[in-house]
């Protein structure tokens, strides 16, 4: 394992050591302030997504590596809680509200946030495999972005929405990780968001029907 990859992982683990694998008391207060408490749904969703993640990780990397997938998921959950809390603090400051019931009961928001957290973890570990196996490890490249979107059945356009706020909310992310997220962002913007079935087309249609003065470009354009 190269020193740069080790640094990347150690830094991530170090940053997350104080973050538990359960919602902190601050995050719990945000949950309790909601009109509808999202706690049970959050936990249930994590359980379901962990099963999907572990199963697909095992298929991609090999059944003997399932435990590695579990470790990555566990780190991803810590990162997810950490960023969620920071995002809510920033939104509380910006909007002067404490009830985020609608956002915290939005399944797409949670799934996108967790996917982004896992992408951060996977990117940190990705370096290990590349350096360890001389860049030829096909199994590891199988779990590279946009693999996570497929595992979570998540639209790229929804994943895109969380990236900037995610980077803003976690100033401890390394330069390499931020660069990786930027690469994901560019891939979505240039290609993935324009694939058939993307929610972007429905949004463009609604914009157009909403009487927008400007002429909306056709999807082909």
């Amino acid at each position: 394992i190269s020193s740069s990859a080790m640094t990347s992982i150690q830094q991530l683990k170090g940053d997350l050591i104080s973050t538990g694998d359960k919602p902190s008391s601050n995050l719990d207060t945000y949950f309790k302030n909601c009109t509808v408490d999202p706690t049970q749904d959050v936990l249930k969703r994590l359980e379901t997504l962990e099963k999907a993640f572990s199963q697909r990780f095992g298929q991609a990397v090999g059944p003997r590596c399932v435990v590695l997938g579990e470790q990555r998921f566990s780190l991803g959950v810590r990162q997810y809680y950490k960023v969620m809390e920071a995002m809510l603090k920033s939104e509380e400051k910006r909007l002067s509200v404490q009830n985020f019931s609608k956002l915290l009961n939005d399944s797409t928001f949670h799934t996108s946030l967790l996917a982004c957290a896992l992408e951060v973890v996977m990117a940190a570990y990705g370096g290990v495999s590349r350096y360890n196996h001389g860049g030829g490890d096909q199994a590891e490249t199988d779990v590279c972005f946009p693999w996570i979107l497929d595992v979570f059945n998540l639209a790229a356009f929804d994943f895109y929405k969380v990236i900037e706020s995610f980077i803003k909310a976690d100033p401890t992310l390394s330069k390499d990780i931020v660069k990786h997220l930027e690469t994901c962002e560019n891939l979505i913007m240039e290609r993935i968001a324009w694939r058939t079935g993307s929610p972007l087309f429905e949004l463009l249609r609604q914009e157009h029907e909403g009487g927008a003065a400007e002429q909306v470009e056709t999807p082909a354009s």
């Binding site: 910006r94 909007l95 928001f109 929405k161 900037e164 980077i167 803003k168 330069k175």
Partner: peptide, 21 residues
Amino acid sequence: SHDYHFGLEDHEGISELFDCD
């Protein structure tokens, strides 16, 4: 410390992006 370009305006937070404001 990184070169990421933040493009969102001050009135755009994660709540607006998920239509929850």
